[in-house]
């Protein structure tokens, strides 16, 4: 596969809510009231329960892993969590190639909602599988 700067990579999309968050809490032992209970999320000023940043982190990894292929490598990733991922949002993980140096590819990555609200922007470096 030829990769060029500016390429948009395939997205990873999930409608997010308790079904996702509680499964993630299950594996990450992250049973935090603001992620499980609308009343607790509302009390914290977020209008309801909201998802873990760690799960968006995982979704971005899922997207990159599909892009690099079975023998590819995710070398590094950084994101900032800017807005909460609230119940019922359709969250999409995106990536655009920003640089190619040898076999290392840099990408701008982010998650956004169905309304285009950017939740977690960041960057990543990967090496494509052979």
């Amino acid at each position: 596969m030829t990769v060029n700067v500016g390429d948009v990579i395939p997205t990873f999309v999930r409608e997010t809510g308790f079904a996702n968050w509680n499964r993630y809490a299950a594996v990450n032992d992250e049973f935090v009231p603001i992620h499980m209970d609308d009343a607790a999320g509302e009390a914290a000023g977020n209008g309801g329960a909201f998802g873990m940043g760690n799960l968006q982190w995982a979704y971005l990894h899922n997207m990159l892993r599909a892009f690099v292929g079975e023998n590819g490598e995710i070398l590094g990733m950084e994101v900032q969590f800017r807005s909460p991922n609230v119940k019922g949002q359709t969250l999409t993980a995106h990536g655009v190639v920003t640089g190619i140096e040898g076999d290392v590819i840099s990408l701008e990555i982010w998650t956004d909602t169905q309304d285009g609200l950017k939740l977690a922007p960041g960057s990543a470096t990967v090496r494509m599988g052979k």
Partner: peptide, 24 residues
């Protein structure tokens, strides 16, 4: 008993049922 107990139980029993997770 709260959602915390139920979600932990759902975790080990794969029993993620909307009416046990979500007031709405």
């Amino acid at each position: 008993t709260t959602v915390e107990n139920w979600n932990r139980f759902a975790a080990i029993n794969d029993e993620f049922i909307p009416h046990s997770m979500d007031d709405q």
